[in-house]
Design a protein around this nucleic acid. Structure first.
Length: 703
DNA sequence: CCGACAGCCCAACATT
DNA sequence: AATGTTGGGCTG
């Protein structure tokens, strides 16, 4: 633990509140995190073709249970009713065979009893729910069953902590800020692939039809992936869980099952109690502080948000992208934003206005959320962030710093949004609205300063960033100093683009950094639901663009890109492609009955249900893959749809499972390739009609 | 039933 | 045919 003096030195003002926070948090950050003895549990069931086992009914036999501990030791409990011979030669796992399912479950419960921490993937909704119901069904003595059911869907354990990794990794705040959005589906296979480079075993047949040897291997693999999600990268996930549970003052089981608004609620409630403050009720905050006073740009939103600067379309060389370091938390800190300081009672504060709103903010008393967010921001930026990369420190120290700084990042990034969310316990829309308004002021003034004081061209900007054309080093230096003096917020260089291509659309551009790595934002070629057939040429084009050093080379690159696209167009015309490469994969965001529009994913889902009436029904989070076809009609909708969808039975898509190449609507595929690639090529000055289709249209000739 | 925020783009459906 | 709405996926 570093000396307190050193840490205090990073704060510009030595206020007593800061000293107290340092005293409180430093021991907490540096307390060691034990590598808790723990074990994963994963179950396999007997079932029937196209039937999904119902964990509430628990009618099928448990045929296998795999458990792996953090020492990497795996044991598989397997049901072997016919006492078949198991060839253990190529299975380096401990195997325990049972003739009777009841005995198997009792043995599993005993093994669970050894560990103080149990890890599952979807244990709350499946594995443990199933085991609990199954055990009761088999009349196993209640005293031997380790599960504690709560009113909600959580399953706790009598003697240990249960972490359901599905619930933890599902939190968007963790997915994005702690794991850098490495995974986008929350499935064991996807998490294993992206975080561990280890995927589930591929199966040729159904689980219950496997040879016992394969069943054991399959089950063991799942249990291993599950535990390794907690051990990989020096126990990164466990350390994050411990660190954030400590900061937010939450039990591990509750922390891993709840989302950011609850984390921040618990954190702030604790700080209230420590200071013997009354915790306000949501109705009181709303009544005293009022509602929003600006109009959102998007209808249905509550207040005016960020500014996106109109992009200057075209190719630009030597572009510096500057951005404010954690702008929103910085504003909360520097402008004393908190639910009790916004629109306060002091007459003298009423002149301290927030631009473009009717709000003002207190100048007399420090706001609690401003202080907490400010403290976390400063200690992250000025202490842990550098130390996470400092090569003079030991691996251990670096890792520790990295865990702390990414934990703090999770809290910081959520600290603005929660104030605008009506299910947050300290919901205060004027705070969120004021934060956004001050951010607009910061970015607008920065743009103005660039243009009017420095004579620089600003090409684009979004929320907290500006794209500056050909700035001199002294321009950058002056901007940085000016920002610090004006806003007390660091403005720093995020990227330097050798060149970038801006389209006339906001949030859509690409840039090639000076090191030659491509940065792509918002373009269709990058979206996960764009078919491979369009993604491949898009990526090939990007590789070519990455190698471009000069404007002359760009002209050559254009020719190469045109050839690639023309080649792909010919392939499509000749129907030379794999059906899978055409698939558009879309995630369902609601239950099928909830849709108010006869959308393509809905059409495909309906056809799947018709084709597999006994199969798993598409639900929230299901990914539907389909291809575009010529319109055709279907009969007898298998489910009741929303009343808003009337008389719809015409489909323009087929799910990939039911489609063949002859179903493909070739013109639609060409359209898709065109719309994906045109986004890239129109920014670099290639016309689709002239270059790709190779013929000039009449109006071009007559111009 | 939900699960931090607003702004933007695109495709397809729905309505006029 | 033009315009508005819905839904998904993205940026920050």
């Amino acid at each position: 633990m570093p000396p307190k003096k050193e840490i205090m030195a990073i704060f510009e003002e030595q206020r007593s509140e800061i000293t107290e926070l340092v005293d409180q948090y430093i021991p907490l950050f540096f307390a060691s995190i034990p590598d808790i003895k723990r074990c994963s549990v994963d179950i396999e069931l007997h079932s029937e073709k196209n039937k999904i086992p119902n964990p509430h009914a628990a009618e099928e036999k448990v045929i296998s249970v795999g458990m792996t501990n953090n020492e990497g030791e795996t044991v598989v409990f397997v049901l072997n009713e016919e006492e078949r011979k198991i060839n253990k030669e190529h299975i380096e796992k401990e195997i325990r065979e049972f003739r009777d399912e009841k005995d198997l479950l009792i043995a599993v419960f005993q093994e669970i009893g050894i560990y103080p921490l149990i890890i599952t993937f979807n244990g709350d909704n499946f594995d443990f729910l199933y085991l609990d119901n199954r055990a009761k069904k088999l009349k196993i003595d209640e005293k031997l069953i380790p599960f504690v059911r709560t009113r909600s869907q959580d399953i706790y354990l009598t003697h240990a902590v249960h972490i359901d990794l599905y619930r933890f990794f599902r939190q968007p705040a963790m997915r994005i800020y702690a794991f850098g959005a490495a995974y986008d589906k929350v499935t064991l296979d996807e998490l294993g692939k992206t975080l561990l480079h280890k995927e589930k075993m591929q199966l040729e047949k159904d689980i219950w039809e496997l040879e016992l040897e394969d069943l054991i291997k399959y089950n063991a693999r799942d249990a291993e992936i599950t535990i390794e999600l907690t051990t990989f990268n020096n126990n990164q996930a466990m350390e994050l869980i411990f660190m954030l549970s400590r900061i937010t003052k939450m039990p591990i089981d509750d922390f891993t099952r709840s989302s950011v608004s609850i984390w921040i609620q618990n954190w702030m409630y604790y700080e209230h109690r420590l200071r013997e403050y009354l915790i306000p009720r949501p109705v009181d905050i709303l009544q005293l502080k009022g509602d929003t006073s600006t109009e959102a740009i998007i209808k249905g939103k509550k207040y005016h948000g960020a500014i996106v600067i109109e992009p200057a379309a075209g190719v630009w060389w030597n572009v510096h992208v500057l951005d404010f370091a954690s702008l929103y938390p910085s504003i909360i800190k520097t402008r004393n934003l908190s639910y009790e300081t916004i629109n306060c009672n002091h007459d003298e504060c009423k002149v301290n206005k927030i631009p473009e709103t009717n709000h003002w903010v207190c100048t007399q008393v420090p706001g609690i959320s401003s202080m907490l967010v400010g403290f976390i921001r400063d200690i992250r930026v000025y202490w842990f962030k550098d130390r996470a990369k400092d090569k003079t420190l030991t691996d251990n120290e670096r890792n520790q710093s990295d865990v702390i700084q990414s934990s703090l990042k999770v809290l910081l990034n959520a600290s603005y949004g929660v104030f605008g969310s009506d299910n947050f316990a300290l919901y205060c829309p004027p705070v969120a609205e004021s934060t956004a308004a001050l951010a607009r002021e910061a970015i607008s003034k920065t743009k103005q300063y660039c243009e009017e004081k420095l004579g620089l061209r600003v090409l684009y900007g979004d929320t907290d960033s500006i794209f500056v054309l050909e700035p001199k080093p002294e321009d950058i230096k002056e901007l940085e100093e000016w920002s610090l003096n004006t806003f007390q917020i660091e403005l720093s260089t995020d990227y330097v683009f050798r060149y970038c291509g801006l389209s006339d659309r906001k949030k859509n551009y690409f840039g090639i950094t000076t090191r030659g790595s491509p940065i792509v934002k918002g373009l269709m070629g990058k979206k996960k639901n764009t078919p491979m057939l369009a993604k491949k040429p898009f990526e090939e084009a990007l590789v070519i663009l990455s190698e471009v050093q000069t404007p002359d080379e760009l002209e050559e690159a254009k020719n190469k890109i045109v050839k690639i696209i023309q080649g792909q167009m010919r392939n499509i015309s000749k129907r030379e492609f794999d059906l899978e490469d055409l698939a558009i994969s879309v995630t369902l965001s609601k239950r099928l009955e909830q849709y108010d529009s006869w959308t393509q994913p809905l059409q495909a889902a309906i056809q799947l249900i018709q084709a597999y009436p006994e199969g798993e029904k598409p639900n929230i989070g299901s990914v539907i893959s389909f291809i575009k076809t010529k319109p055709f009609k279907i009969q007898n909708l298998p489910i009741q749809l929303s009343d808003k969808i009337v008389g719809s039975n015409e489909c323009s898509v087929k799910p990939i499972q039911l489609a063949s190449k002859t179903d493909v609507d070739i013109s639609k595929v060409k359209e898709l390739l065109k719309s994906t690639l045109i986004q890239l090529i129109d920014t670099i000055g290639i016309s689709w009609e002239e270059s790709i289709e190779g013929q000039k249209s009449l109006d071009v000739w007559f111009k």
